[in-house]
Write a protein that binds this DNA or RNA. Sequence first.
RNA 1: GGAGAAAUGGCAGAGUGGUCGAAUGCGGCAGUCUUGAAAACUGUUGAGGGUCACACCUCCGGGGGUUCGAAUCCCUCUUUCUCCGCCA
Length: 423
Amino acid sequence: MLQLQVIRDKKDALIIALKKRNIDASPLLENVLQLDEKRRTTQSKLDNTLAESNKLSKEIGMLFKSGKAQEANILKEKTAGLKEDSKRLGDELNATAEELKSVLYQIPNIPNDLVPAGNTEDDNEEVYKEGDIPTLDTDALPHWELAKKYDIIDFELGVKITGAGFPVYKGKGARLQRALIAYFLDKNTEAGYSEIQVPHLVNEASGYGTGQLPDKEGQMYHVGADDLYLIPTAEVPVTNIFRNVILNESDFPICYTGYTPCFRREAGSYGAHVRGLNRLHQFDKVEIVRVEHPSSSYAALDGMVEHVKTILRELKLPYRILRLCGGDLGFTAAMTYDFEVFSTAQDRWLEISSVSNFEAYQANRLKLRFKDEKGKNQLAHTLNGSSLALPRVLAGILENYQTSEGIKVPEVLIPYCGFDIIN
RNA sequence: GGAGAAAUGGCAGAGUGGUCGAAUGCGGCAGUCUUGAAAACUGUUGAGGGUCACACCUCCGGGGGUUCGAAUCCCUCUUUCUCCGCCA
């Protein structure tokens, strides 16, 4: 959520910046300012009424104490009208505040200056590319065929147990999956991220805190009986650790890494492009989350990007990095870098990581602040990224490492797997 | 799941209808003293709204109610603790 003060101060600049997302924010922002104005006048009317009623109450108290019940009762009558007024003004204030909040929730984050304009993923800007795309035999298979051939992932079994998009990993497939998780976590902790295990279900307040609610309500699985949501990413529980927290400057930087399964309804996406591991309802992911001082959040973002690079370099997977354009940028992000690995047999790029700076947008919802050197509370910046999302990394490994003898295991993973080929 | 107790500032812990945003202790910060540090002493120390700045308003787990007036009384939800039951 954007800060009211920022909207008040720089409305026109915000409208221009939000054009990159192809939205005309001016009606929304106007509405915000109008509601804010109304909120403040109502608030001040209410405050005055309450002040008067507080004053009378004190007088009544003193009169009763000094035995002047008669006079006190006269004053009591005067308070009746004030009570009605404050009730009415209070209701009005609440309604206005609610309305204001709901409009604020509809405004996405302001894209960073570096974010290119554009509508679709075709307008994303490739900023980096590394690794050689292997030349495969003509009979090379896509990963879902390989999974079947070597019996390491069973999609049909998942359909039987749960439904489409819930694969079952078997034997060396399961072991490879576990190896990847352990390897990612080790790399992250070596880089200074502390490992953490968090709940896989979150409450409504957490959903609002990181911005999944109300914007992406339909993307999360909701457990009605307990009113909880299955997490779509570890970002939600990990970042919400800091909801309603006031940090000291010396606490920065805060770096966490956690492995969790992720659950996404993916309503409306069907077809060939979601085959195999390309898009699932349940998948595993290792996430990195940082909380930073505003002055260093972009350095932190760069650091996260460099870190993810080292992992892909070690896995020897061909990848590229895109800076997302305004139209493709997530609702809450100010800037995002997507990592894509080349899936050779499918001849397409697969997104395997998304690293974002949310600046103060999430912090404003979370009320995540720190005391600056002047002792004033300021909003912190939050960031997160995948390091990495498992299924598509697995798809990339299976396809790019396939040989006529079987699928070779990337060297760095051999110690984690205990085998060097899947055949 | 059943029975009972509780929830107050960074922490501990007073406060059962009026001047309580809240005693006291610890911790934090600043100062005095000291070559420096410790100790001691002095002062200061929650958040939000509002204002040029004050004033003023709100917040004692969340929500609602009673009352001229609620941290204090009532209802409700949540959480924690104790006992019982169940259980990986």
